[in-house]
């Protein structure tokens, strides 16, 4: 049993704007009987203002597919085409309160049908079936999902796992053969999002650093890698001086009076600084 919001149930039980506009200015379709859900959206557009004056839908699908279509019609009615094009699947899901993860693809279907309907209007009104751009790389052949669609879903919804991608796009949900490729796309997109600037910068060797750079580099390792571990034992460390390769620190708290202070200093603090910055570093106690 799905945990549907009251809003989903309301739009499922009392769907708004059901049907087909006879002399529609735009008709968009997405999905098929094979996929298990499909949506046909017809729109009436004011040619001068480009405002969507009327919209109707027909949906074959589960409760969340019907509810997503229904609320979409409410969202686009009265909007201009450019405003309507800004609606994402996330907006549809949010308008419904929420959708179960496994049902997010229903909201994606709404967004795709709307895009197709607007495209249809712009092309003179002949029905447009939402499909991947010609020449795009189809990743999931069971559900006909392109790499572009997967990348867009990852960006729009901040997806992190292959399972997420399946929930939002259906890709990988049938035979599962494309899961590996989805994983590759995912890691490609995610690695691009991580700020890459610091990585790209070549690290300056320790010996060529100015004294300020040396202090910064040592402080960074102390703060990120050394202090958190010493804190676990109730201790800490403080930088007191840097002279060439010699880094002088003061062990604080529990570490200060600890019998293992020398071992901590050489075995942990010095080793970590050597691993992270330069093998020439020597640590002394203040």
């Amino acid at each position: 049993m799905w945990d549907y919001t009251d809003k989903v149930m309301d739009h499922f039980k009392n769907p708004r704007n059901v049907g087909e506009i006879k002399d529609a200015d735009g008709t968009g379709q997405v999905g098929s009987l094979i996929c298990g859900d499909a949506l046909k959206l017809t729109i009436k557009v004011n040619k001068e203002t480009e405002v969507i004056e009327d919209v109707k839908f027909q949906t074959f699908g589960c409760a969340s597919a019907i509810a997503s279509s229904s609320i979409l019609t409410e969202m686009v009615k009265g909007k201009t085409l450019s405003e309507a094009l800004k609606i994402t699947n996330r907006d549809i899901a949010e308008a419904l309160g929420s959708l179960p993860e496994e049902k997010m693809h229903c909201s994606v279907m709404g967004m795709e049908a709307l895009d197709a309907a607007i495209k249809s209007y712009k092309q003179g009104g002949a029905p447009v079936i939402f499909e991947q751009e010609p020449g795009t790389n189809i990743v999931c052949h069971c559900f006909n999902v392109s790499e572009q669609a997967i990348i867009q879903a990852i960006h729009n919804n901040n997806l992190k796992t292959v399972e997420d991608v399946t929930h939002f796009t259906k890709a990988g949900g049938a035979c599962g053969k494309c899961k590996e490729e989805i994983g590759r796309i995912l890691s490609k997109v995610l690695s691009c999002e991580v700020p890459s600037a610091p990585k790209a910068e070549e690290k300056k060797p320790y010996s060529e650093m100015t004294i300020v750079e040396k202090i910064k580099a040592v402080e960074e390792v102390l703060n990120n890698d050394i202090k958190p571990k010493l804190n676990l034992d109730g201790g800490s460390v403080e930088l007191t001086d840097i002279n060439g390769n010699i880094v002088t620190v003061k062990l604080l708290g529990m570490c200060g009076g600890c019998m293992n202070a020398a071992a901590t200093l050489k075995g942990f603090v010095e080793k970590t600084l050597r691993d992270k910055i330069s093998k020439d570093i020597e640590v002394k106690q203040a």
Partner: peptide, 11 residues
């Protein structure tokens, strides 16, 4: 036996 009821995507 529909796909949607199981959370899988195939009937």
């Amino acid at each position: 036996g529909s796909a949607c009821t199981s959370g899988s995507l195939e009937p």
